[in-house]
């Protein structure tokens, strides 16, 4: 198996992971503190996913289809760096490492908000700017003991052209650059991802091969109310 150079993919993740569940307290009876377990399965053939990050809060969206990505989302989608998305949020949790193809990661989020809205995100690291996740998913109706299963597609952040060049893909297939402030995509907005091409399909300068292709869904998320 390839060795993954984490420094290219998640420069700040170690700091972020320490934030999990900080400040949890149950002695304020006016606050109803709710917890949710989130199990994530990477459904792709060969797209490692950057350490997934999740936050249940009052519902500010991390992206909107058809709108330009925030700089924080651009960092996540181009390099797997989620620190901007969860900047200053005590309730944010992040997996301790890459979510490899076929593997499962589990996160537990807790929130005091009366209407908990879940956002989570992860980068498909053998791409230019593909990510998956969900944003502002309303969990208020999910009662303890209940589960909700979501099959999620890959999105394109619209912040980097899908060149598939080794220099622009931070994952093991490329080993190249992650974040770059330039925005040179054909459509500068968040959309669903068109998929990757790969060298066998005629993109002779692509760093990707047939194993890196994917179809939707790419991520299964099971949310369990605790």
């Amino acid at each position: 198996m390839n060795r993954y150079d984490l420094s290219k993919i998640l420069p700040l993740s170690a700091l972020v992971a320490a934030l999990a569940l900080a400040g949890c307290s149950s002695d304020n009876e006016e606050m109803e503190r709710r917890s949710f377990r989130i199990d994530l399965v990477n459904l792709t053939a060969n797209q490692p996913m950057s350490p997934p990050v999740a936050l249940a809060d009052d519902g500010s969206a991390w992206w909107s289809d058809g709108s330009a990505a925030s700089e924080a989302l651009e960092h996540l989608a181009e390099s797997g760096d989620a620190s901007g998305l969860i900047n200053g949020e005590d309730g944010a949790v992040q997996a301790g490492g890459l979510l490899l193809p076929g593997m499962t990661a589990s996160l537990t989020v807790a929130t005091d908000d009366a209407q908990p809205m879940l956002s989570l995100a992860t980068m498909l690291v053998n791409t230019n700017d593909a990510f998956s996740g969900l944003t502002a998913e309303d969990l208020s109706d999910l009662q303890p003991g209940e589960q909700r299963v979501l099959w999620l597609p890959a999105r394109d952040a619209g912040t980097e052209a899908n060149s598939e060049s080794a220099a622009s893909i931070p994952g093991p297939a490329g080993g190249g650059e992650g974040y770059n402030a330039d925005r040179d995509d054909v459509t500068g907005m968040v959309t669903l991802h068109p998929g990757v091409v790969g060298v066998e399909a005629g993109a002779s300068d692509s760093a990707l091969d047939a194993s890196h292709r994917f179809d939707n869904p790419v991520l299964r998320v099971t949310i369990s109310a605790l």
């Binding site: 597609p153 054909v186 669903l192 091409v197 399909a201 005629g202 993109a203 939707n216």
Partner: peptide, 28 residues
Amino acid sequence: GVVGDSDPTGGISDLDSRVHRWLNPVAR
């Protein structure tokens, strides 16, 4: 789906394989 190629002045397709492909779904 479309195939496309990387050759804007020839090749088998006038579509760009890195631009014009899609995966379902295509609309909501």
